[in-house]
Structures are given as C-alpha cells and as structure tokens.
Amino acid sequence: MSTTIPNRNTLLAGFSSADWESQRRRVTAVLLILPVVMMTLLFLVPLGYLLWLSFGGPAGFSLNAYKQLSAPFYINLALFTLQLAFLVTIACAVIAYPLAYMLANIENTLSRLVVLGLVISLWLSVLARTYSWIIILQRNGVVNNMLQWMGITDGPLSLVYNQTGVYIGMIHILLPYMVMTLYPTMRAIDGSLVRSALSLGATPWTAFRRIYFPLSMSGLVSGSILVFTMAIGFFVTPAILGGGSANTIVMAIQNQVQVLVDLPLAAATSIILLLVSMLILVVYEKIAGVEKIFGEGR
C-alpha cells in the first residue's frame, strides 16, 4: 500500500487558509448562538436571580438570610447531608470496585449480564426504583418474609422509612455511575504491567497494591466525585425512603419555599449548595478534566 493518507494541507489545497479559517469560525459561532442563548436565559439568569434574592432582592442589600443559615439547625443539617453523601460514596466505591474489575478483565456471560442489569437499572425511573424499594423493604415485604422464612429473624425488621432504607436506596441508584466511571479506567490498564510484576516474583497482593490499584486510582477519584455530588443533591430517595428521619439540605430548601415561604432564606441556602457543587465541578475539572465526560481522549 503506497497511497499517501491525505492530510489537512493536501485536502485543503487551493483554499486560502485565512479565508477558510475565518469562514469556519463564523460557522462555529452561528452553531453556538442558540445553545448559548438558551443556557444563558434558562440557566444563568434563574441562578443569577436567586443570587440577587439571597442578598435581599427588592428589599435592598442584606446579609440576613445568610446569618439565619449559621444557626445550629442548618449546620447540623449540612453535616448530616455531607455524612450521608460521604458514606454512600464510600459504600459505592467498595461495592463497585470488584464488579468493575470483573467487567474490565473477564469477558464472559456473567459480565454481560452485569452490564445489562446496570443499564436497565440506570434507565429505570428514579421514582420507580425508590417506590420499588418500599415494596421490597416494608414490614411484610420480600426481604422481611425471606429473613423470617429462613429463621434468621423472628419478627419483621424495620428497613424502610428510616436511614437504613435511605442508604440502601441511594447506594442502589448511584452504584451504576460508579461502575461506569471505574470501568474505562480499569479497561485502559496495561495487563502486561501486572504480568511482569508477577513474573518478577511479586505476590498477587503486592502486584495489586503496588501496580493495579494506583493505576485505577484516577477512575476511583472521578467516580467518587461524581457520586458524592449527586448524593448531596438527592431529593426523591431520602424524602420517600427516609420517612422524615433523613432530612437533607435539599429537603430543607423545599420546606423553606413551600411551608415557611421564606424566599430569601431558600435562595441563600440554594446559593450555598450551588457554590459547593460548582466547587466540586472545578475540582473535577482539575483532577480528571471535564472533557473526559464528553468522551474526548478516551
């Protein structure tokens, strides 16, 4: 085969490159007008309005709303939300790691079934999955019947409308995101590195600890950031499965709007939460690069 692969210059021979570039830039701008206007009017403007309201809005500048947020009630709420998100993230990481390892390294029917299950779960409505967990975990639900039938417990355990239910539901919903972030990283690990460590006399445990685990670390970090962010903002699952025992910041915001009707307070709480999630996004950008989510450089 002696055909030369055409490159940019041969393909664009005969075009003035300055003309081509300026026309290309103009077209790019035209393409971006609609989406940028849409994001500005429907995303940046509402959030900007929220920022303005949180500092007093039409009543004039005031830090009142933010002062209210320093009350112990809100501090405890924030701490509980962070604790919930943190524990769910750790649990997802620990549960997902062996599963992603299997998907990345072993190709068999079982791996394909796991992928199918994860995709179905990911596509099934969050509301539906949360509802389903009530049916499964309730006092005469599947799990309790099973436990009693096997003689493990005498009476029904209360597994739902408390924090146990919230943890089970949230781990179930966020687990697929962790596996799907870990998988490409593990898939990209060069198997010959592990093999050479083993052939040089390392035990499998040492090879894992010194070679495989450090190489999989970036996936673990980006997956954890993703799951943590989603867990902080979770509303449906803790609100339904918690039965009032797992109150998070987002539930407080809903209460401020619909029950207390304290709009500046709700705006200030939202702005704090917005800042936290933007901060996490920037950290993610620094560590992993947002372009990875967009599929570049994979």
Binding site: F43, V250, L273
Partner: peptide
C-alpha cells in the same frame, strides 16, 4: 451537577 432542587427554586 447542580442539584435539581437549586435549579427548580431558581
């Protein structure tokens, strides 16, 4: 990335 509740309130 931004919680739905924040966007919803906005």
């Amino acid at each position: 990335i931004v919680p739905l509740m924040v966007i919803g309130v906005g």
